[in-house]
């Protein structure tokens, strides 16, 4: 799948906060339809990496390219419009809005009617809104949330909230989806469902997915390629089996000088 141009191209990205280098000289290429994972111990800079991709931070040096566009000085909202969507480690839903409204909001950049059409409730507005609502319900069905559409987001079960956040990210119409610890706090059954769901999303929407995850079973099962970060450095890249046998990765997770134990 690596025959085309990269969809996302991180070139020597470094992110410093004062004296702390959270991400150091990281080069990552992700191609269309890839399903890759970023792993690493706590504080390795995984979420910071996501934040530099989505424009929450601007990298100190290096550059982030998406579809050949340099994302430097591009606002977060504009990056979403270009086609990068994400979920958050600590779920960030619009808690006091209905499930349906959460998804409708994600369609924000694809709205075709103008301000006055909305105020005067023109024919175009009504048709557009109807179309959007149908699309949103379709999407909710895929995630098994259609019958909860009128619930407040805050009243959903934890696993459903995670799903809703993923559905919302997909509703923005992305080419690349970033999932920040989608399995955090889920039980083994839910994690298994999630594995299937991620495959389904990739194939049905034909998008690339990058996920950050601590659940190694999930990562090893679905990631075609794994990037390992440790103290902001990219220490290993490879397939699941390559990573499992990589000495530096084992050291990063378990510490050095314990030869013979493993």
């Amino acid at each position: 799948m690596s025959n085309t141009l990269p969809l996302l191209d991180l070139e020597h990205v470094t992110m410093k906060f004062g004296g702390l280098t959270a991400v150091s000289d990281v080069c990552i290429k992700v191609f269309p339809h890839d399903l890759v994972a970023v792993i690493g111990p706590n504080g390795a800079g995984k979420t910071t990496l996501f934040n530099t991709i989505t424009g929450i931070y601007t990298p100190t040096t290096g550059c982030v390219r998406f579809n050949q566009n340099d994302l430097k000085n591009t606002k977060s909202s504009a990056i979403t419009e270009l086609g990068i969507a994400r979920t958050f480690q600590n779920i960030r839903l619009f808690k006091n809005l209905s499930v349906l409204d959460n998804i409708k909001l994600a369609k924000h950049t694809r709205i075709k009617y103008g301000f006055w059409a909305g105020i005067l409730r023109s024919k175009k507005f009504i048709e557009e809104e109807k179309k959007i609502e149908l699309e949103c319900i379709e999407l909710l069905k895929l995630f098994g949330l259609a019958e909860k559409k009128d619930f407040y987001a805050k009243n959903l079960a934890y696993g459903q909230q995670r799903k809703l956040e993923m559905a919302r990210a997909l509703a923005t119409g992305p080419k690349l989806l970033l999932l920040d610890e989608p399995a955090a706090g889920m039980n083994p059954t839910e994690t298994k469902d999630l594995t299937e769901l991620i495959h389904l999303i990739r194939d049905q929407f034909n998008i690339a997915i990058i996920l950050i995850e601590h659940d190694m079973k999930l990562v090893m099962e679905i990631a075609e390629k794994i990037f390992v970060l440790d103290y902001g450095h990219l220490i290993a890249v490879g397939s699941a089996s390559e990573i499992q046998n990589n000495k530096r990765v084992i050291e990063a997770y378990l510490g050095a000088d314990i030869e013979g134990v493993l």
Binding site: I56, S76, A78, T80, E81, F88, L93, A106
Partner: peptide, 10 residues
């Protein structure tokens, strides 16, 4: 509701 999420929705 949530500024960061809102910006992330475009």
């Amino acid at each position: 509701e949530d500024e960061i999420a809102a910006e992330n929705m475009g």
